[in-house]
């Protein structure tokens, strides 16, 4: 259990099921504030569901989630989603320019994104200013993913959830995104929770790690645990024996 830091997100006996199938089983853990925590584990472990619970896209069947010390149900849904941003692996882009995509979160609040702020956002995610008016369809996978992260950052979330955002990218783009995650964490003190299948990324970028399997959190700790796990199931997973 991660106990030496103030929690940004706290799970208290969380259960979640779909059609009688248990997706998450009695999760009681926390994500430290201002740190990068990676979630690793085989497919179907419940990692994405966990992120969607934090952003309020889903609600647990039982248990309580606390965001920055307050029960998640005490937040208004819109307020919660601005506080806890999420970039999903398959986040769709809106047809049109990069600017149109970046402007979306403010447009939903009836506000306008000024071009200077849009350029700053692009700068933050490592894209040149001239990308602003480029059609989204002309962007590479890595560039799209950066725009997707920048779009989530428009709301200035204090907690950023990232779901396998590098899985379909080449090595160079992966590295750029890794650097970007560290930069966002350091510049804005954003708590980052990042699902990744790449154990090397988890070890080098993450401060903390959760290993999840079949809806349960098997082991948590600093990312060093991936070098020398205590749990036997985790050792099997790290050896590639559990898919």
């Amino acid at each position: 259990m991660i106990t030496d830091y103030k929690p940004a997100v706290n799970f208290n006996h969380i259960n979640y099921s779909v059609d009688g199938i248990h997706i998450l089983k009695n999760i009681t853990e926390s994500f430290p504030e201002g740190k990068i925590t990676t979630l690793v584990g085989p497919s179907g472990a419940g990692k994405t569901t966990l992120l969607k619970l934090c952003n309020g896209l889903l609600s647990p069947d039982s248990g309580e989630i606390y965001i920055k010390g307050k029960s998640i149900s005490s937040y208004e849904p819109v307020e919660l989603r601005q506080l806890v941003g999420i970039t999903l692996q398959s986040a769709p882009m809106i047809n049109g320019s990069v600017l149109k995509n970046l402007a979306l979160p403010l447009e939903l609040q009836g506000r306008e994104l000024i071009e200077k702020d849009a350029k700053n956002l692009l700068h933050d995610v490592g894209l040149e200013e001239e990308f602003l008016h480029r059609p989204i369809k002309d962007l590479s996978g890595g560039q799209r993913q950066k725009v997707s992260i920048a779009r989530t950052l428009v709301n200035r979330p204090q907690i950023l959830l990232l779901d396998e955002i590098t899985s379909s990218l080449d090595r160079i783009s992966q590295q750029e995104i890794e650097e970007l995650i560290v930069k966002i964490n350091q510049k804005y003190k954003t708590t980052i929770i990042w699902i990744t299948h790449n154990l090397q990324q988890a070890m080098t970028v993450g401060n903390y790690t959760w290993v999840m399997m079949k809806g349960e959190v098997i082991e948590t700790g600093t990312s060093d645990l991936l070098h020398s796990p205590v749990n036997e199931k985790v050792r099997h997973f790290l050896k590639g024996e559990v898919k």
């Binding site: 952003n55 896209l57 819109v78 989603r81 601005q82 941003g85 999420i86 999903l88 398959s90 986040a91 769709p92 979306l104 979160p105 939903l108 609040q109 779009r151 989530t152 428009v154 709301n155």
Partner: peptide, 16 residues
Amino acid sequence: QDVTELILSLGGTPKQ
């Protein structure tokens, strides 16, 4: 469904 989820996740209302 993914677009609906995206807009909700960014703080949009169901109508949006």
